[in-house]
Amino acid sequence: MELTLAIAIGVLTGSGVWLVLRPRTYQLVIGLSLLSYAVNLFIFSMGRLRVGAAPVLGADGSGNPADFADPVPQALVLTAIVIGFATTALLLVVLIAARGLTGSDHVDGRESR
């Protein structure tokens, strides 16, 4: 479980960083999105991973409060998702405006050569 999550976060971050460093605006947006997925998973994992634990209480009313997943990181992830979604949408608008105004999808508005 830990290994799978760690690899997933690593792959997302690696591809995200690579894409962010590319010169096209579309690659930039996708790169930032991948990075934010990775970060969201990372925040989530900071609440510790548990397999098979009861969400609140077991069916028979039993349950150890120490077994519950920490709700705070989950709340943080929700906020981070919402904010990330909004800012990515804004970035898309700017991207389209930049494409229209400069006639190029290069992040500097013109080809480097």
């Binding site: 970060v39 405006a97 930049a98």
Partner: peptide, 20 residues
């Protein structure tokens, strides 16, 4: 718009670092 694009990209990346 061009410098705005740079500004937004840099700040989004910085916000991700903030979250981490």
């Amino acid at each position: 718009v061009r410098s705005g694009l740079h500004y937004i990209a840099i700040n989004l990346a910085a916000s991700l670092l903030f979250l981490i």
